[in-house]
Design a protein around this nucleic acid. Structure first.
Lengths: 337, 337
DNA sequence: AGATACTCAGAAAACGTATTCTTAGGGTAA
DNA sequence: TTACCCTAAGAATACGTTTTCTGAGTATCT
């Protein structure tokens, strides 16, 4: 009755159980308390009052939240949920909670979110960070344990776990070249995306090796972008299209269908990421698959290491590989033939 | 040097600026401080030391976190990111942070997550909760402001914002009936889903009205489920398939393609939710569209009301409507004709 | 000119918890 | 039997912040 509406505290429980707050705390946290009757009294009082420990006060006292924050550029991209599930798998197993935030592909918002999360979390996972190198420097100054996925940073005490996208790109190019393609278009991702630079470099290296021409046009990371930009590529006489990711490929496929161009008879399409829907499309999408779940698991494991010793930051790289489905085939026979 | 590695506190700033901690706090929070030189000293000291206020301590002191937690059954379902973006839109505008958690369609995990979030947040949004009514009672006992989407609860002080799915279902049935369909199959969602019951009821009511037969088989909420279960429906002589959601429809479409059945010539397919990929499929999916973004915005607005007065809990319902694309058409002419 | 009101910044308290410190009591050993 | 040690639980403290309280100095009004 003393405090009409506010939550009961250890003090209330102590008073009700005729014990000290220290005893209440000890009982409720499983510390050794000798007198069984006392233990029972405290337990009963806590249950009676519906006592729930104040999480914020507890975290404050401990100086630790057992919570990990993760920032993704766009939750609507089906790539990330798989990574998140991997992360959750690893982190909840070690009694950590997972807090997810979406920055909408906005580098400033991303920095802001990291700032806020860093105050409430013990560590942070940055998925495919879009922010500038300067911003990453700022974040490093905050000294919070952090691991980046899909981006390697130089000279910063961050763990990184990335994808060897050149590997998959090489396989894609070789697959297309073997089918007879000599002119490949690339629908590039957001300029702020580190992944895009890696994929593009891998593509160009493999293309040069196999003597195939590559035409690059800027698209983005969404189906809409792929849908809008695809025609630019058609004007450049390519017989196959590689997309920055599956979403972009999906948009390209839709546009090709509207244009009456059959895939793969008239033109081949290759995606990247192997998002869950890719296999269900018609035609099923040939794409580069990456170990998304593992990516999350590895990021979680690395972050846990960083939690015990900040100096353990390492860089890791996971493989990628082409999975051939129905959206690729030989180029159409030249009309002049 | 006193504290070698730990973060600087107001105390450090005060000492460095030769001011009191009260003054430091006032300056840093924009409270009135008269002496400009003092203000400058404090600001300079804070910048110099790289002082960042301890968020947990601040939240503890305030008893408020300005943070909203949201639990979704499955982030991999493209329905939810749209809702989340609506929520974020509303909530960040009112200076609230958004914390997202994924319970993997597990009702127990869902309850657990709500318990954890409730300790760190001022309010919670439960998206399409899968937990039992008893569990909801437990949550109600915790007394945290909460709003449910896609589920209406009786006698609990929760706000709810749902979808009038009967509306869309009626339109879907009428559309199919007008095309000549008399036998419709329904790929039902998870049994724990309140939405499924609503959609099923709407479907059955509309079907009875229009004199069409409806066959129900249990599927789930994933493409995989739709892919696996679809054949069961084919044995029951239906000419059109309604799916619990677009993901299930996607799986059904893939299975039909494998079976060599043309959509919509041989069979029609209708989804639910209108997830972003639906429009990009081949054939583009006829589906029931729901105002996902609005759903999030309304949930956010309602929760903000609850934050100021717990008694303001209201129930709201948003419309749904059919969007006709390419996956529906007249039933095939009877072979016997 | 004197007293009162007001302003400004420092001192101190409070939030709820976990834990260290303290004290009282009992048991054991010399 | 006394002294010492150990145990068990209560008292007190600290975590970092915000805010109320307080006291001193200045200005204003009569």
């Amino acid at each position: 009755m003393n405090s009409p509406r506010s939550r009961p505290t250890v003090f209330d429980v102590a008073r009700s159980a005729q014990a000290s707050i220290a005893t209440v705390s000890r009982v409720l946290n499983g510390r050794a308390v000798a007198d069984q009757a006392l233990v029972d009294r405290v337990r009963a009082a806590a249950r009676e009052l519906g006592y729930r420990p104040n999480t914020v006060a507890r975290d404050f006292r401990h100086g630790v939240t057992r919570t990990i924050g993760v920032v993704v550029p766009d939750l609507a991209n089906p790539f990330f949920p798989d990574v998140l599930k991997g992360l959750a798998h690893d982190l909840t197993a070690s009694d950590h909670r997972l807090l997810i935030a979406d920055c909408n592909e906005d580098p400033d918002e991303e920095l802001r979110l990291v700032g806020e999360l860093s105050g409430r979390c013990d560590g942070i996972v940055l998925c495919s960070p879009r922010m500038s190198t300067q911003s990453l420097d700022v974040v490093a100054g905050w000294g919070i344990p952090l691991v980046c996925t899909n981006r390697e940073v130089e000279g910063l005490p961050f763990g990184t776990v990335g994808i060897d996208s050149a590997m998959g790109m090489r396989q894609a190019v070789e697959h297309l070249a073997a089918l007879g393609h000599r002119d490949i278009g690339y629908l590039a991702g957001p300029s702020s995306s580190w992944s895009d630079r890696g994929r593009r470099a891998g593509l160009e290296a493999a293309a040069q090796e196999r003597g195939v021409r590559v035409v690059i046009v800027g698209a983005g990371s969404t189906s809409h972008a792929g849908h809008v930009v695809l025609p630019e590529l058609l004007n450049r006489n390519v017989t196959a299209v590689l997309a920055f990711n599956d979403l972009v490929a999906l948009g390209a496929l839709a546009r090709l269908r509207e244009l009456g161009l059959d895939v793969p008879a008239a033109i081949s399409v290759v995606g990247f990421d192997d998002i869950p829907v890719a296999a269900f499309l018609g035609p099923a999408l040939t794409t580069v698959t990456v170990p998304k779940h593992d990516l999350g698991v590895r990021a979680g494991a690395m972050l846990r290491q960083l939690l015990v010793d900040r100096a353990l930051a390492r860089r890791e790289r996971l493989p990628s590989s082409l999975v051939v489905r129905e959206s690729t085939g030989p180029p159409p026979r030249d009309i002049a033939t």
